[in-house]
Computed example of a mutant assay.
Amino acid sequence: MENRNFQMDTQWNVIHYPEKPTGFGILIIGDERHFVDESKCFWTQNEGKLAIINDLKKAGYTIFSSNLYGRNWGSENAIELAQKLYQHVIRNEILNHQIHILAEGMGALVAVRLIEKMKGCIRSVILLNPILSLKHHLEQEKEHKFFYKKLMRELTAAHNMDQKRIESIIFSMEDFVNMEFDCPVKIIHVLTGGKSYTQSKLYQKIIKSPEINPTFILPEKKPLLGKIFIKFLSSNETVL
């Protein structure tokens, strides 16, 4: 069996099985375009992401992911469901209880909260082109009225709040993001376009941890992402 799709709390989830499992699991938390349905998911439909999945499976990783209510923007519902998915997978699969997390874009908002809530259960975390601060993300999008309105609609739906309240909460957040965790965290940013450059400057401004130095790679190096991920993940597997 290559993969298994199943529902939990109305949301579809998927587990991808390697041919030769090593006993280590990876939870993938996707970006805005991410989805999981009854037969497929974004990471197997997208050519670049599928290459990463295949590299990780060849290295023996069991990979699992959830639809997480679509564009959840770090909502409590998404965080709770990710925890339930972890518990389900650990109960039903033969895996080390300490998992890796691979989160992209908006998925970093869920990942950071999971690190806080699941102490002792997370082995390492990779954040790919992460959105770490909703406050700074909103400030960036304010320049683009159409995208700002769209983002506000998604935020109000995800967090079940009206626009005024959610804007008030987000804009009163700290400028810094505390990234001092009890597990290793690696940030990898693929430099594509001006927005990526702005985001890379933001990391310097908002990351409150001397131990985290983002790695920047050029777009032509994207095919190497799977190998880069595996090198980092395996370096954190010496202690079972």
Results as ranks from 00 to 15, higher is better:
7 Q>W: 00
9 D>T: 00
11 Q>G: 07
11 Q>R: 09
11 Q>A: 09
12 W>L: 05
12 W>D: 11
14 V>L: 06
16 H>E: 05
20 K>F: 08
24 F>T: 03
26 I>H: 03
26 I>N: 02
27 L>G: 01
28 I>W: 00
28 I>S: 02
28 I>H: 01
29 I>T: 01
31 D>E: 10
33 R>D: 11
34 H>R: 02
37 D>F: 08
38 E>S: 15
41 C>P: 01
47 E>N: 12
49 K>P: 00
51 A>E: 06
51 A>K: 07
51 A>V: 03
52 I>K: 07
59 A>L: 11
59 A>C: 10
64 F>L: 01
65 S>N: 12
66 S>H: 01
66 S>Y: 04
68 L>Q: 02
69 Y>S: 10
72 N>W: 05
72 N>E: 06
72 N>R: 04
75 S>D: 02
78 A>H: 00
79 I>E: 00
79 I>C: 04
79 I>P: 01
79 I>G: 02
79 I>R: 00
81 L>M: 03
81 L>I: 04
83 Q>L: 10
83 Q>D: 02
83 Q>R: 12
83 Q>A: 11
83 Q>Y: 04
85 L>A: 06
85 L>K: 02
88 H>G: 05
90 I>C: 10
100 H>R: 04
104 E>F: 07
111 A>S: 11
114 L>F: 04
115 I>R: 03
117 K>R: 15
118 M>P: 05
119 K>N: 08
121 C>N: 09
122 I>S: 01
122 I>C: 04
123 R>M: 07
125 V>D: 00
127 L>H: 01
128 L>W: 08
130 P>A: 03
133 S>H: 09
134 L>M: 12
136 H>V: 01
137 H>D: 04
145 K>V: 11
149 K>L: 10
151 L>H: 01
152 M>T: 07
154 E>L: 07
156 T>L: 09
158 A>S: 12
159 H>D: 03
160 N>T: 14
162 D>P: 07
164 K>H: 10
166 I>A: 11
167 E>I: 09
167 E>W: 07
170 I>Q: 05
170 I>G: 09
171 F>D: 02
171 F>T: 08
173 M>K: 14
173 M>P: 00
174 E>F: 03
175 D>K: 14
177 V>P: 03
178 N>V: 06
182 D>P: 04
188 I>W: 08
188 I>A: 05
192 T>E: 11
192 T>G: 05
194 G>R: 11
195 K>G: 15
197 Y>E: 10
199 Q>I: 14
200 S>W: 11
201 K>G: 07
201 K>E: 13
202 L>N: 07
203 Y>V: 08
204 Q>P: 00
204 Q>C: 10
207 I>F: 06
207 I>C: 07
207 I>S: 07
207 I>L: 05
208 K>I: 01
210 P>N: 12
210 P>A: 12
210 P>T: 14
210 P>H: 14
211 E>H: 15
211 E>C: 09
212 I>W: 12
212 I>C: 08
214 P>T: 10
216 F>V: 09
220 E>R: 05
221 K>E: 11
224 L>G: 00
224 L>Q: 12
227 K>P: 06
227 K>L: 13
231 K>G: 15
231 K>W: 05
232 F>P: 09
232 F>K: 04
234 S>H: 14
236 N>F: 13
236 N>Y: 15
237 E>M: 15
239 V>S: 14
240 L>M: 13
